[in-house]
Design a protein around this nucleic acid. Structure first.
Length: 608
DNA sequence: GCCGTTTTCGGCCCGACTGTTTTCAGTCG
């Protein structure tokens, strides 16, 4: 009997493996018919890491890294371009263009395959540990034969690392600590999580005696969708006491470093905070430096060198060693003859040459936004009544809002509450009554967030949609549909004359990065049909992302930035969406919710 | 390997902090 059970068990195991293989094969076919830009960028990043461990010329490493970053920010599929066209993109020269073409042609790269035979690719994982760079990784591999994090842990526990050159007991202990942290930690956090922590620490530090100023810098100031570290910069009378206060707060799990100018802590929830202090007359340089990005700072310093100036977080130094101090951030750019570059643009994507030509875009701002066209209430899964949402919108200076609750189909997969077809008339009556009772000129539009079904049809019939002021159509269900089907579903919705906006088009919900579609086709259809596409400001969505938003506008589509608020506080999420639009270099004129209510309503009516 | 207001070769950002050293290399931002 035991033997029979064992045989049955083995049989089931073997069959499971067989089906798993078939499944993985199908997955591969479904998603890997050709290389997307993200995959190509990852390959060049991988090459950079391997070359660095190998000890290759650091500028060659930098070239691959810059190419990876450049490719990451390109929204059009690279497969569309020939070698000459590829070389027009920044950081892509003849060699890398050739490699991109080989990847597109064969799905493989001989150069990488050879490199991976020389250097164990699992060494790259070691670089993800804080405090381990390429030199240490190479040392552990060459001297101890370590190729994985697991082997590193075993060696550290056995004390086999502390006698290596440059290593000691402390470094060995630190490595074990970093391995433990990696096992437990989430590396990046959604922007809103870090934003709340930042506000709290800013207030706390500003109240401390002798602190004159604390500002949020780093990737949070540049409005990246996810944040690794929180950077704070400040001015204080006496740095040491502030740093002591900073590193001795009760949530501090570990002091990563502590100095008079810079300290770094890890909170018990895994968030790392760095505090930088500087004198008042040098504060502008520090704020500029800590805001980053790294790539922007390197470019800016190279630009400064060409003008005979060495730039650091302390200010400028001329060739004859005279200092130029910058109390304000704007002074840094002005000294170089540049227009002030808003933080969201500082990614080394051409912002420095544009600032030199005084041709930076006139970026969209909060004050341009007059309406919020995606709001939920207790009629579906929101937590506040229509009245509460209307009053909160009024307090924020909005001129119009759209109430857009979920339809039943989204409930099936997402467990949302929903508004039924029968309830829709009751909701309309409630809106009419609230509208009459409002003392301000706020307009409440009757809307819906209608689900785009698997076959591309909508969850409510056309005659129902035609009687609403505004219709937002979104995908929440069957997100694992094929790329071709997703594209078809989105375009079907776009072409429906009653649909005004496509909500969070890619279905991104952190950490899920969203569905694949033929975005150029989707954007062209949206432009043809005058259907707007949303930049959803919910910090877990932030969808469209910056690359796609920029591409959609390039292809002529209208956009709308909406909060997707499920509570009155969520209306403030709008700032995150505006940040994404600014990161995409977008100006107010392509956003339908910068229009006056009158203009908006006539646009909606014209569309039917 | 890329790039050009020093343009087809020679240069490619700069400083704080740590842990190891005994003046500095490695890592990070």
């Amino acid at each position: 009997m035991v033997s029979f059970n064992k045989r049955v068990g083995t049989f089931i195991f073997e069959k499971s493996i067989m089906f798993l293989s078939i499944f993985l094969g199908l997955l591969y076919e479904k998603y890997n018919t050709r290389m997307n830009n993200e995959a190509i960028a990852a390959i060049f990043k991988r090459i950079a890491n391997l070359l660095e461990i190998k000890g290759e010329n650091r500028f060659k490493v930098l070239a691959y890294r810059r190419a990876a970053e450049s490719i990451h920010s390109i929204s059009t599929d690279l497969i569309e371009f020939d070698e000459q066209e590829l070389m027009q993109f920044p950081a892509i020269g003849k060699a890398i263009a050739g490699k991109i073409q080989e990847l597109n042609r064969t799905g493989k790269l001989e150069f990488l395959e050879k490199l991976e035979q020389e250097i164990p690719p699992t060494l790259i994982d070691l670089l993800e540990l804080q405090d381990i760079g390429h030199k240490k990784a190479a040392l552990f591999w060459k001297e101890v034969g370590i190729t994985t994090i697991e082997e590193l842990e075993i060696a550290a526990r056995a004390g086999r690392l502390q006698n290596l050159p440059g290593m000691g007991e402390k470094s060995e202990g630190r490595i074990l600590k970093r391995i433990e942290e990696k096992k437990a930690s989430i590396k990046r956090f959604p922007i809103n999580v870090v934003f709340e922590i930042a506000k709290d620490w800013k207030t706390r530090l500003e109240k401390f005696q002798g602190v004159h100023r604390i500002e949020i810098a780093g990737s949070l100031r540049r409005i990246l969708p996810t944040i690794g570290d929180l950077d704070l910069v400040g001015i204080a009378e006496e740095n040491e006491s502030v740093m002591d206060f900073f590193t001795s707060q009760r949530e501090v799990a570990e002091i990563l470093s502590s100095g008079t100018n810079k300290s770094s802590i890890m909170l018990s929830n895994g968030v790392r905070i760095q505090l930088w202090l500087q004198s008042k007359e040098r504060f502008g340089s520090l704020l500029q430096f800590v805001t980053g990005s790294k790539a922007h700072n390197i470019r800016l310093r190279e630009f400064a060198l060409k003008k005979g100036l060495s730039l650091s977080e302390h200010g400028f130094v001329t060739k004859d060693l005279k200092e130029i101090l910058c109390p304000l951030e704007v002074d840094v750019y002005a000294t170089l003859g540049l227009a002030f570059i808003p933080p969201e643009l500082r990614e080394d994507k051409g912002e420095i040459p544009a600032a030199e030509r005084q041709e930076l875009p006139n970026l969209i701002e909060r004050s341009n936004i007059l309406s919020d066209l995606h709001i939920h209430t207790i009629w579906s899964d929101g937590s506040h009544h229509i009245t509460e949402m209307a009053l909160s919108a009024e307090n924020r200076g909005l001129e119009a809002i759209a109430i857009t609750d979920h339809t039943p189909a989204s409930f099936k997969q997402c467990n949302h509450n929903f508004i039924s077809l029968d309830s829709l008339d009751k909701q309309k009556m409630e809106i009419d009554s609230i509208q009459k009772s409002l003392s301000s000129p706020l307009t409440i539009l009757k809307g819906i967030e209608v689900e785009i079904l698997s076959d591309g049809k909508l969850d409510f019939p056309d005659e129902v949609l035609s009687e609403l002021d505004i219709v937002l159509a979104s995908i929440h269900t069957n997100l694992d549909d094929s790329k071709a089907n997703i594209t078809r579903r989105l375009i079907n919705a776009i072409q429906n004359p009653h649909v005004d906006i496509i909500g969070h088009p890619s279905g991104r919900e952190y950490p899920f990065e969203g569905i694949e579609a033929d975005w150029d086709e989707v954007f062209k259809a949206a432009a043809d049909c005058d259907t707007a596409l949303e930049i959803n400001s919910n910090p877990l969505h932030l969808d469209l992302n910056e690359q796609r938003a920029a591409r959609a506008v390039e292809l002529g589509a209208w956009l709308a930035i909406n909060s997707d608020a499920h509570s009155s506080k969520d209306l403030d999420n709008m700032d995150f969406g505006i940040g994404i639009a600014r990161r995409a270099w977008l100006e107010p004129d392509r956003f339908i919710n910068t229009w006056s209510t009158g203009e908006l309503i006539s646009w909606l009516k014209e569309r039917g």
